[in-house]
Write a protein that binds this DNA or RNA. Structure first.
Lengths: 337, 337
DNA sequence: TTATTTGCTTTAAACGTTTAAAGTGATAAA
DNA sequence: TTTATCACTTTAAACGTTTAAAGCAAATAA
């Protein structure tokens, strides 16, 4: 089955390639193609099962109708939710999504971005890894349209859409305080990510604003490489302290899941012995014997916003927008009243 | 920042485009390019920050070094695991993955496949939806290399890699029987999928081979559209029956998660009142108060096998291979001994 | 001296499209 | 009759690469 292109159709009908192109691109009457030929061409295209070669089209048009997406790790619930939202929105706008997962590796991130740029994507949606500032700046120099998603760097002025992390953490902490918790631990990754630091800040400010004196061991910073051990160690500390914490606030779903596994192993009752609040969502939160109260990120909205911001950039070039969305507090029963 | 192509480098160095192409493709000595020019060209490419235009390259080479992947639903644990494995393997082989999620819709599946073919992917890895046989046959007619993953159609002779579903279900059931369960329910989707029917068959044969008389209400067929209600209804039946079931075997993770949520709501103790065994894996299985025993699919191996089978097909064309992999039984504590 | 080889470089066509510009024959207007 | 207009069609260049083939000096052989 040799491939059929415009040429084959043209030969079959007995007209020029140009005419075929016009008709098949819906420019039939604009270019005043005779009804007769238009008809024949369409029929032939159908019969011969013509598939336009998008590669050739892209080359000529200098436009691929493709968006590159790099997520941090395809196994995160966040990534799949956002990917799905982006795919759906992109499709509406007639774009295809080329996709890659950096697995939180800076090198992989760089490779992926390069591969996508070489493939002439029209723009990129990026969940950057740590230390990827250089690559981001490079993109700006090259003039490649992109928008950062979820994570961003305050020192790099770029378009982004993210959660209002400060407010989410502040509100989450305030929620716990209002429920009567006085010793609230925060489990967060030890990282240079601004969005995670904002979560710390929101937590700390909420404590302060409510007159609660923060104690240093309440903030447990987890090394991602050793997370299982670190979380266990951290939970040990906040539980065995002379004045044990009465609530644990997890800054991500992955932290919470690991934490809950260990709490199960210890036989610690949630929320009787410890209230639990987490960022993000997870199937596991619903299946835990006590559904976990969590701060849900609006993945749909984030994905949509990222796509439309990107397309605006692709079409009209200069755009300068930073979007911070609000989280929802989804009440489970994991916080003692 | 206007873009730099071979032309710009050629002008900059003062040689022809061909020479630049040779050098940058590592054919310098094969084509006997002078060391001097080779040097200058490499330097210029570096300085000018040359990015090869893969689109142009693909057009000329009639090869895109791209694999199209269509999964059933990006939110499935299976999909992310397999996607990750495929991406990693493809990268090793110097391929990029173009990715889409059909969301179990036949129309979306067709659209995605068409879009990928139009983009001239070198081959496809497909997790087909129900009723996609026609599209599959079409691909065969077009001579597009592809391999089916996870699901396949016995009436369509095509390359595939999948689990040995019959054996997995048979072994799972036998495991429950050996632990002393005598009334085992199977929850499976009501579907035309052969791989799911194989799970039924394995279950039924295991019962028979162990001298257990199957009772009709043990097999609960769930309509995916109404799954929440159907599962609740099904669990009601097997639990309230005069001779209630002592074990529930879920044919997929999604079924199990829904089932466990409802068991939680009912206050049914696992495994004291009901043992639970499931296909697939899930974070939720570990977090449930009783870790759920499950049949783990070898996602890594499946992804790798699919990629290498596909590449073999792309390179050498005629291949005819069907691969059935074995599952692992991961013991939790959800089956009463 | 002329022919051949060697070492290096350029030319030009091709991949499958798009599209501005030019071409053509018929009919209408001058 | 000449010219203009109309209705349609074709030509040909371009997008950025790859690569077979041809080209060209200088060196070597005859």
């Amino acid at each position: 089955m040799k491939k059929v292109g415009l040429k084959e159709i043209a030969e079959h009908v007995g007209v020029s390639i140009a005419l075929v192109s016009y008709v098949l691109n819906g420019q039939a009457e604009q270019k005043q193609v005779s009804k007769d030929n238009a008809e024949k061409i369409k029929k032939a295209a159908e019969e011969l099962n013509y598939r336009p070669n998008q590669i050739a089209k892209s080359l000529k048009m200098l436009k691929t109708q493709t968006i590159g997406l790099v997520v941090a790790d395809i196994n995160y619930r966040f990534s799949t939710g956002i990917t799905r939202a982006i795919e759906a929105e992109a499709k509406k706008e007639n774009y295809t999504v080329l996709f890659g997962s950096s697995n939180e590796s800076e090198d992989t991130f760089d490779e992926l971005v390069n591969a996508l740029v070489n493939r002439q994507v029209d723009g990129l949606i990026l969940v950057p890894t740590e230390k990827s500032q250089q690559q981001i700046k490079q993109l700006q120099k090259w003039g490649v349209p992109f928008v950062l998603l979820d994570r961003y760097f305050p020192e790099v002025q770029a378009n982004h859409v993210a959660l209002n992390n400060y407010k989410a953490a502040y509100d989450g902490t305030a929620h716990l305080i209002k429920q009567g918790h006085g010793r609230i631990a925060l489990f967060n990754y030890q990282s240079t990510f601004y969005h995670l630091q904002q979560r710390n800040q929101g937590y700390l400010d909420a404590l302060k604003d409510h007159g609660i004196g923060f104690q240093k061991h309440w903030l447990q910073e987890i090394d991602n490489a050793d997370r299982v051990a670190d979380i266990q160690h951290g939970l040990g500390i906040i539980l065995k302290h002379p004045q044990p914490c009465d609530a644990a606030f997890f800054a991500t779903d992955t932290l919470a899941i690991n934490g809950l596994k260990y709490l199960n192993k210890l036989g610690v009752q949630v929320p009787q012995q410890l209230s639990v609040l987490s960022f993000d969502e997870s199937d596991a939160f619903e299946l835990f014997y006590t559904p976990i109260t969590h701060l849900r990120q609006p993945l749909e909205a984030m994905g949509q916003a990222a796509v439309s911001m990107l397309i605006e950039q692709i079409d009209h070039h200069k755009v300068n927008k930073q979007l911070a969305l609000e989280s929802d507090l989804v009440a489970g029963r994991s916080c003692r009243e």
